[in-house]
Design a protein around this nucleic acid. Structure first.
Lengths: 189, 189
DNA sequence: CATTTTGGAATGAACATTCATTCCATTAAC
DNA sequence: GTTAATGGAATGAATGTTCATTCCAAAATG
C-alpha cells in the first residue's frame, strides 16, 4: 500500500466511514466494513482512532465544525426578513448538498452516546439567528416569545423539511419556498 | 414462576421491555436485560416472541395502534381553527403522557429496520387532520399548498416541541400555547 | 401423570480490539 | 552511489467479549 501523509489518510478513513455508516447504519457496520470501505486494514484504523466510538465522534464533531463555519460571515445588514430567509436557506442547502451529513446526524440523534456529545456543544453556531430574532423582536417584526422557543420551532421546520426532501423522489423547487413562507408567517408578529 | 394468563404475561413483557429499551437504548439492551426487567427468564420471552426484532416490532405497532385510536371520535363539527388546536394538543398530550412511547419512537426513527415498518403504514391515522386541511383550504382559511407539505410541517412542529419538552427541566404551560399559535399562523391563509 | 410453561445455562455467531509481523521510505554508513 | 539499518505505518489473523437464540431440566398446571 502506498504511503499517504497522516492527515490525508485520516480524512480518507473519515469520509469512507461516513459513507458506509450512513448506508449500513451505525450499529450494523463492523470495523472490518469500514476498513474495506477505506481500502485499508482494520489495524490501520486503530492507528488513527482509539476505538469505534472515537471515530464516530470525530465524524460528528467535523460536521458540527462545518455547520458553525456556515454562518461565519452572515450578512447582518439586510432586512430582518431577508436575513431570516437567508439563514433558513443556508441551513437547508448545507444538508441538501451533504446528504450524508444529514443522514448521519439523524442516526446519532436519540442514541445514548449523543447525549454527552450534544451537552458540550453550546449555542455558538446559532449566534446569527439568535441576534436576528432579538433585533426582530425589538422592532416588533418578530413575535414576542422566548427566543429558545422560536429557535426550536425553526429547527423543527428545517428538520422536517429535510426528512421530507430526502424521502421525495421528485425534488420540487416550490416546496422550500413554501416552507420559508410558513415559518416566516409563524414567527412574524 | 406463577402462572399468568398468556395475554397478560405478554403485556408484562412488552411494557417491561419498553421501559428498559428506552432507558438503555434499543441496541444496548440484551435479551437477558429484558428478561430481568420483566422478571422472567429469557426462554419465556421466546415463548411469546420469535425473536428480539419481533418483540420490538410489536411494541412499535402497539404504539401505532394507540395513536390511531386517539382520533377515533374526533369532533369534525367545530370551527377549523378549533379543530386544528384540538388535533395538535391531542397529539402532543399523548406523548407527554407517555414519554416512553415518544422516546421509543425516536430511537426507531432512522434505524434501517424502521424503514420497512413505516412503509406499510398508510396515512390512516391522520385522516382527521387531512380532512381538516382540505376543508380549510376550500374555505380559504388554510394556505393553498400541497396538503402533504403542510402535514409534514405540522409533524415537524410536534416533533421538535416534544424533543424540547423532554429536555426541559421546568415544564412550562405557555410554551405549548405559543407553539399552537405559531403553527396556526404558519398554515392559515 | 401428562402437558404446558418457565428459567437460565449452554451454544455459537458477530464483532471490537490487539499484536506480532511485514513493508517501505528515509537516513546512515561505507 | 550503493548498501545497510531504522522507525513507524500497515496488516489481518487471533483473541476475548457480547449477545441472540436454543435447549432441556425443573416447576406449575390440570
Amino acid at each position: 500500500m502506498l504511503y499517504i501523509c497522516k492527515v490525508e489518510k485520516k480524512q480518507i478513513i473519515l469520509s469512507a466511514a461516513l459513507k458506509i455508516l450512513v448506508k449500513k447504519g451505525v450499529h450494523n457496520t463492523p470495523m472490518s466494513a469500514i476498513g474495506k470501505a477505506a481500502e485499508t486494514g482494520m489495524g490501520t484504523i486503530y492507528n488513527y482512532f482509539p476505538n469505534k466510538d472515537a471515530l464516530i465522534n470525530e465524524i460528528y464533531t467535523d460536521i458540527k465544525k462545518q455547520e458553525k463555519l456556515l454562518f461565519e460571515n452572515f450578512e447582518a445588514d439586510k432586512p430582518i426578513k431577508t436575513q431570516f430567509e437567508n439563514y433558513f436557506t443556508i441551513a437547508v442547502d448545507f444538508f441538501i448538498n451533504n446528504p450524508n451529513y444529514f443522514l448521519f446526524m439523524e442516526q446519532l440523534q436519540a442514541s445514548p452516546i449523543i447525549t454527552e456529545r450534544s451537552k458540550e456543544e453550546g449555542r455558538k453556531s446559532i449566534t446569527p439567528i439568535f441576534e436576528l430574532l432579538s433585533v426582530g423582536k425589538e422592532q416588533r417584526i418578530i413575535k414576542e416569545m422566548d427566543t429558545e422557543e422560536i429557535l426550536m420551532f425553526i429547527g423543527g421546520a428545517i428538520l422536517s423539511y429535510l426528512r421530507w426532501y430526502f424521502n421525495q423522489t421528485k425534488k420540487n423547487e416550490t416546496s422550500l419556498k413554501n416552507q420559508v413562507i410558513m415559518v416566516w408567517d409563524a414567527i412574524k408578529e
